[in-house]
């Protein structure tokens, strides 16, 4: 495996930091920890071909790991409930200001599978007549009514493959 260069870490750090700040998110202010996580992301990109969460075991099959490509599908829920995402790359304002303590949080992945399946079923059973399908970005919740989702989410920059049919 080729080594991750410090320049690559620096570049991705700058990119993620400026994107986070312009969209109302914050990177962890513990720079050493944050850069280590970014290094982990880059290692995973070289290893698997995509930026899989450094704190989760990726399968190497992109279709099975889509939900854990950073930013993961669970980031916003975890930020709301615990003040940080699972790996702690992203933190809430309260953690940033020291009002809340940063810590290791429980894994949310797979927890809601059952709930989600029930919901998907009920949506399918309640077919509403719409002129266009509504697509939902699984990362940030952005909705749009179009024949297909946008190439890149205009809000959080997640790729097209992270969209699901909402209605």
């Amino acid at each position: 495996m080729s080594e991750v260069k410090s320049e690559e870490i620096e570049n991705l750090y700058k990119k993620l930091d400026s994107e986070a700040e312009s969209f109302g998110y914050h990177l962890n202010s513990d720079i050493d920890m944050t850069k280590d996580l970014i290094k982990g992301l880059l290692v995973n990109e070289k290893r698997y071909g995509y930026l899989a969460c450094p704190c989760r075991l990726a399968t190497g099959e992109k279709s099975r790991d889509l939900d854990i490509i950073c930013p993961c599908d669970y980031r916003d829920d975890d930020l709301n409930e615990y003040g940080s995402c699972y790996c702690a790359l992203y933190v809430s304002k309260d953690i940033l200001n020291g009002k809340k303590k940063l810590g290791s949080i429980p894994e949310r992945r797979h927890q809601k599978d059952e709930k989600r399946q029930i919901k998907e079923k009920s949506i399918k059973n309640n077919i509403i007549s719409l002129s266009k399908p509504v697509w939902r970005c699984k990362v940030c919740g952005y909705l749009c009514g179009k024949d297909s989702p946008p190439e890149v989410c205009p809000i959080c920059k997640a790729k097209k493959e992270r969209f699901e049919i909402f209605i």
């Binding site: 290094k39 982990g40 992301l41 290692v43 995973n44 450094p54 704190c55 075991l57 702690a88 290791s104």
Partner: peptide, 8 residues
């Protein structure tokens, strides 16, 4: 995991 901050 070798890439994980909490593991470290």
């Amino acid at each position: 995991l070798s890439t994980c901050g909490w593991c470290r």
